[in-house]
């Protein structure tokens, strides 16, 4: 009996989580497929595209990996590049330390799958009243993972059969971030931090250029957030 109600609860959590992930479905299928096609055209078949998506599960580094796979073998360089390109994930972990506390076994999977998009959803959404936090975040993370791997598989197997022009479809992910940014912006106490994020990244983009924007932007954001901590914490408190 208890098992049955639990299962019902899980299914309900899936039904609640799914609509939230639809933008990621669009973006991931599109990008995942592009990745599958690229692997294919560089001589790496569907199994490699799927294996990479299953194990690496990080968009930008997977696209860069094609350059690594078509040049001299250098796993150390691959490792270092992967750490640098994905350094922003460190901040995602820091942000959800509290949310992911006490979730037991599920927690390891949630951490494994903490991509840009999954982080954005998890950090912006709270499960509805009475729903288990872990189950809700699990479905969001799992569905996103499924879309990514599924997209890569589709692209690798059937990429050449797509006849309609998908140029620009990946804008869905930009749009998702814009929407989630606005959702954060709705809460007045988030606005200074949101502006710091935008401002520091623009400054870093201007100084370091598009290829090296992320790490300097992170350092700058952290520095400004720490320097302004007293002021920002006052804004936090004033919301009550």
């Amino acid at each position: 009996m208890e098992e049955a109600s639990k299962k019902g609860g899980r299914l309900f959590a899936l039904k609640t989580a799914f609509p939230a992930t639809i933008p990621v479905l669009t973006g991931y299928l599109c990008l995942g497929m592009a990745f599958g096609v690229l692997m294919q055209t560089n001589g790496y078949g569907p199994l490699w595209a799927i294996l990479m998506s299953l194990l690496v599960y990080a968009g930008s580094i997977q696209f860069l990996s094609i350059a690594l796979l078509t040049t001299a073998f250098d796993p150390l360089q691959a490792f270092l590049l992967s750490v640098m390109v994905n350094a922003r994930h460190i901040f995602y972990g820091l942000s959800v330390l509290g949310k992911y506390r006490g979730l037991g076994k599920i927690r390891a999977f949630l951490i494994f799958g903490l991509t840009d998009e999954t982080f954005s959803l998890v950090s912006s959404l709270e499960p509805p009243e009475g729903m288990e936090r872990g189950t809700f975040y699990f479905w969001i993370s799992f569905l996103d993972y499924l879309y990514w791997v599924g997209g890569a598989a589709l692209g690798a197997v059937a990429g050449n059969f797509i006849t309609f022009d998908t140029t620009g479809l990946d804008f869905a992910l930009t749009a998702l971030f814009v929407v989630l940014f606005l959702e954060q912006w709705k809460h007045r106490e988030n606005r200074p931090a949101a502006m710091i994020g935008v401002g520091c990244t623009i400054v870093s983009l201007v100084i370091f250029g598009a290829d090296n924007v992320v790490i300097p932007a992170m350092v700058l954001i952290l520095a400004v957030l720490m320097a302004g901590r007293k002021k920002l914490e006052r804004t936090e408190e004033s919301k009550v």
């Binding site: 931090a193 710091i196 935008v198």
Partner: peptide, 22 residues
Amino acid sequence: VTYLGKVLPPAMMGLLVVYCLK
């Protein structure tokens, strides 16, 4: 860490928007 958990999400969402348009 608690403070960063509060301010990093909006800041990182700002970073991601700019990052997408880089």
